[in-house]
């Protein structure tokens, strides 16, 4: 905590007393010094005298309230005055509590305990709020973003891309024959497949830039800011390969999985002002194309070319989807 008083004896007396109670005590001779100390070494409990040179306790309260800190700052104003007007002025300036000097040591400690209780409450509340906010945008099964986040965040990403004339692309992907996994191996294994899918692919995108959301049952969306159609197709092919390359380990043994990918990118001349829904619909149409062409492939908006490699061949023309190649379900 921070003790602010212009008299060295008063300061020292408070310091000694509070240190005995186990507080880590910083001290300052006036408001300006107090602000400097808080900036260097933040502490959430401040006990300040009222009358001080340079910057008095009232100004200090206002200055503290006027800034953002690591947490709430609990302010106790120490004063020799006890007129009601003064108390009100102090509380209006942002003090949480006030103590009239000379302060009885037991009362001081009791008031500080109150302060700590409030700081604890505030901390818990903030943590819970953060956690709730996180849960509200997270898919509980896979831990990736959920559809709510997608529908809130994608329009923002689109606006930003448009404002700065930057590219943006997205990949819509769907696990092939996923219903078969659920029907044959059970929903638990189906869930494990979805978890492995996001584990495998989630690490393939740029941290803090790209993000992945679960769109529906076995449908996922990658949102790729600063990525054009070519980059997006290249990534989609890589993702496709990564899914098909090795079977997914599950509690029912390895399960071979493939996925189909449809991509869409913000056009360079975006005259139509494509919205999030339109871009998703575009990707969905491509995804449908990929599925119709035999699954386990990528389809882009420019005809079927995206489903082929650089030489113009479809590199994976004949690999059949094997969604149920795992061991039969246990009894």
């Amino acid at each position: 905590m921070l003790v602010v008083d212009d008299h060295p004896v008063t300061r020292r007396l408070l310091e000694v007393q509070l240190q005995r109670e186990g507080y880590r005590v910083l001290s300052a001779a006036h408001g300006r010094e107090a602000l400097e100390r808080l900036g260097e070494d933040f502490c959430p409990l401040v006990l300040t005298d009222w009358m001080m040179p340079e910057m008095d306790g009232l100004e200090l309260c206002r200055a503290i309230r006027g800034r953002e800190w690591d947490s709430y700052v609990y302010l106790i104003l120490l004063t020799a005055r006890d007129a009601l007007d003064d108390v009100l002025t102090g509380l209006e300036a942002g003090a949480d509590d006030y103590l009239v000097k000379p302060v009885h040591p037991m009362e001081l400690l009791a008031r500080l305990r109150t302060g700590r209780r409030i700081l604890d409450l505030e901390r818990t509340l903030k943590e819970r709020t953060r956690e709730i906010a996180r849960l509200a945008v997270t898919d509980p099964l896979t831990g990736v973003y959920n559809r709510r986040y997608l529908m809130e965040q994608l329009p923002r990403e689109l606006r930003r891309a448009r404002r700065y004339r930057r590219p943006l692309a997205l990949i819509l992907c769907d696990l092939d024959h996923f219903k078969g996994v659920n029907d044959t191996l059970g929903h638990k294994v189906g869930d494990e497949v979805l978890q492995e899918f996001t584990r495998r692919l989630g690490g393939q995108v740029r941290q803090g830039v790209d993000w992945l959301a679960r769109y529906g049952g076995e449908e996922f969306v990658f949102v790729l800011p600063e990525t054009d159609l070519a980059g997006c197709l290249a990534l989609a092919w890589r993702l496709r390969e990564l899914v098909a390359a090795a079977p997914f380990p599950t509690s029912a043994g390895p399960v071979a999985v493939t996925a189909s990918f449809g991509v869409a990118a913000l056009p360079a001349t975006d005259a139509a002002h494509l919205g999030a829904e339109a871009l998703l619909a575009q990707a969905d149409a491509c995804l449908y194309q990929a599925k119709a062409a035999g699954r386990n492939r990528v389809a882009g908006p420019e005809g079927g070319t995206a489903g082929r490699d650089e030489a113009g061949n479809n590199p994976w023309p004949s690999r059949p989807p094997r969604p149920m190649a795992g061991r039969p379900p246990k009894e």
């Binding site: 008083d5 212009d6 008299h7 004896v9 008063t10 007396l13 005298d49 009358m51 040179p53 020799a80 000097k101 000379p102």
Partner: peptide, 14 residues
């Protein structure tokens, strides 16, 4: 006024 105020508080504390 300010100096006397400070002195008053410290004296009371001691």
């Amino acid at each position: 006024w300010h100096q006397a105020h400070s002195l008053k508080g410290a004296a009371a504390g001691l």
